[in-house]
Design a protein around this nucleic acid. Structure first.
Lengths: 195, 195
DNA sequence: CAACTATGTTGACATTGTAAACATTAGCAG
DNA sequence: CTGCTAATGTTTACAATGTCAACATAGTTG
């Protein structure tokens, strides 16, 4: 009986799963490698066979969330493309996803969690597949129909990205609160833009 | 000789001072209550006579930074008022201050540090003296010259705030990078707005 | 089957936050 | 000045945590 338990089999994956649960239940400050290991029914050093250190576990968890985020945004971009609703709906999806997953994004953005993503303006280079890339490239494709100047497009995109990211961040950090429908608010905030 | 040292005298203030230094030198993950106490030449539990716990120390440090931030923005608002340059300069000051103090804002926004500030939209209630209040009320005063509708003003302000806060946050978190002058970029980002 | 590698466990250690019990000093009442 | 009391520090102790080293077990492969 013990023989079957000695080797867990899918510990790496379960660490990520249980890590997500722990974050949801106890927030950032309740998160610890040892707790997650215990949730997997494994000794507190077993995870080190799969993750170099705590930070690498956090990064894996973060990537899992960002992957869902990407998929969510991709769907929104597709819908917007088909139904000609413009980028506002994608922006709304961006904010909604972050606010629906506050605890996860506190973890990703408000902790020492490394996010393996970096966008550069100017040439707008990004690692494909991450949510920010999805948002920005979706917006680029949309704006190209209306605007020629590449620099202006980038500027507008950056503006939109900052708006949706900024408002989400402020709300999640509890620096700002709106007593009403955030989607409607975002809609209006983005509409203030020329496009 | 020991008699002079037993009572520190201004420990509370020095904890804040040395805390700021430690954050600058070692970042969030290098920050600990015990280290700050050591820097003050005091036992590791002495701070508990002045702060309920670590979080309260962090809050005090955060408030110190936010006070400087407020003062900086107040100056910018004053200048904008006198020289009729509009809110773009205040926005640039906002971003510049955050990027000039990356380590502090990582501490404030990307750690378990409680920021004792909460703005509410709708009625736009804020605790006076905090930087966000300075920015928003400065913007309100400015916009009232051009726009009547209170709701629209609030929407534009929130947009501007999100833009400057969002871009700063993204850069500090190293999710986004711009190889050029951020002030010029912010100028353009805000100018995309109707006003 | 034997040896190797991947995966877990035990035990140890340093760092940290925090609480309790005790020490020193400052300030004030008499 | 004396002595009490509150404010401020220190020592000691403990639990939680990340991490390392040494060892154990189990698949895998020649």
């Amino acid at each position: 009986m013990q023989k079957e338990n000695y080797h867990h089999g899918t510990l790496k994956e379960e660490m990520i799963q249980k890590g997500l649960i722990l974050i949801n239940n106890e927030g950032i400050k309740g998160f610890s490698l040892r707790k997650v290991a215990a949730m997997c029914g494994v000794s507190h050093t077993a995870p080190y066979k799969h993750f170099k250190n705590k930070e690498e576990l956090m990064e894996a968890i973060s990537n899992r969330v960002l992957k869902s985020f990407s998929e969510c945004l991709m769907k929104a971009v597709e819908t917007a493309k088909n139904e000609q609703t413009g980028m506002a709906d994608v922006g709304k999806a961006y904010v909604k996803f972050m606010l629906d997953n506050k605890e996860y994004f506190r973890f990703i953005f408000f902790s020492e969690c490394k996010v393996n993503v970096k966008l550069k303006a100017n040439d707008f280079i990004y690692k494909p597949g991450n949510p920010f890339e999805v948002f920005c490239s979706g917006a680029t494709a949309y704006l190209e129909h209306f605007i020629k100047d590449k620099t202006e497009i980038n500027c507008i995109i950056l503006s939109m990205w900052s708006i949706v990211h900024g408002i989400s961040t402020l709300v999640i950090h509890e620096t700002f609160e709106y007593e009403g429908d955030y989607e409607e608010l975002v809609e209006r905030m983005l509409r203030v833009q020329p496009r």
